[in-house]
């Protein structure tokens, strides 16, 4: 890390972000390029440059809003903000950290329920089979979100085009993959 000087002046959420991701909130000078390029800005209550500004305030109440925001879940980690930021601030990496923290502290935004359910179903599928089993993923996700019909219109077309596997592919060392999961998730608790 090049400028150690910054580290001592950041506390609160900004300090945590710095510690875990190396992102220095106070190097943002609010040019707004990240928010201008972000394809999801319009669906966020705080576009990326706002998040940066809030971190700079080190105001606990505002920080709480970030952890409870829809913003962090609708961010797709498309990396557009990072690639255009004149200060090379790794916003997507910061978003990953904020999401993880938000879940861990039970603060996930209720509107993000479906998005999170999808990520969870995805990981559960890998945990058990080692690979993503698309049919299993969809069934599991549908069960979690009660949106049974939404994507089912695609299924017959996918089947007839050989795009759906009826059975999951199982890797040999499945137990090892499950072990990776239990180790990493334990740490998170």
């Amino acid at each position: 890390m090049s400028s150690e000087a910054h580290q001592s002046v950041l506390s609160g959420l900004a300090g945590e972000v710095l510690e875990h991701t190396g992102v220095k909130a106070n190097s943002c000078y609010q040019c707004g390029k990240c928010s201008a390029g972000c394809p999801l800005s319009g669906e966020m209550e705080y576009p990326p440059s706002y998040v940066m500004r809030i971190l700079q305030t080190e105001d606990a109440e505002l920080e709480e809003k970030i952890l409870r925001s829809f913003t962090i879940w609708v961010c797709l980690t498309c990396e557009m903000c990072y690639s255009r930021c004149p200060m090379s601030i790794d916003i997507p990496k910061m978003m990953d950290f904020l999401r993880e923290k938000s879940i861990r502290e039970g603060k996930a935004n209720p509107r993000a329920k479906k998005i999170i359910a999808f990520h969870k179903s995805f990981l559960d599928s890998i945990r058990t089979t080692g690979r993503l089993y698309e049919v299993g993923l969809l069934v599991d996700y549908k069960a979690r979100t009660m949106t049974l019909m939404q994507d089912m219109v695609l299924a017959p077309k996918m089947l007839s085009r050989g795009k759906l596997n009826i059975f999951p592919e199982l890797i040999k060392e499945r137990s090892k993959v499950s072990k990776i999961f239990s180790r990493s998730t334990k740490k998170n608790k």
């Binding site: 797709l76 980690t77 990953d96 950290f97 999401r99 993880e100 879940i103 999170i116 999808f118 990520h119 969870k120 995805f122 990981l123 599928s125 890998i126 080692g130 690979r131 993503l132 890797i171 993959v177 990493s184 998730t185 998170n188």
Partner: peptide, 13 residues
């Protein structure tokens, strides 16, 4: 095995 894609880095570094 699966690389974990978006789901893994969203939820667990």
């Amino acid at each position: 095995n699966c690389c974990g894609a978006t789901a893994a880095h969203n939820l667990n570094k």
